[in-house]
Amino acid sequence: MIVEMENRLKELRAERKWSQGDLAEKLDVSRQTVNSIERGKYDPSLPLAFKIAEVFGQPIEAIFQPNGDEQS
């Protein structure tokens, strides 16, 4: 079963006033990849998800949730 993920990338990025390009640079990915993750078009791999969590200083589950899950 494919589970689509929701994420708070855009919200966390806006809090830090980072552009998609800024975040892409920090993650060593293309800006289009950041855009695709934010729009829910692409789910990152585990290493990339860990990298995202490290960049934002938050646990992975605080950033990514399965579709329809509410963060407790």
Partner: peptide, 8 residues
């Protein structure tokens, strides 16, 4: 886009 990817 990351500089590494641009250079690549």
């Amino acid at each position: 886009m990351s500089q590494r990817i641009k250079k690549a």
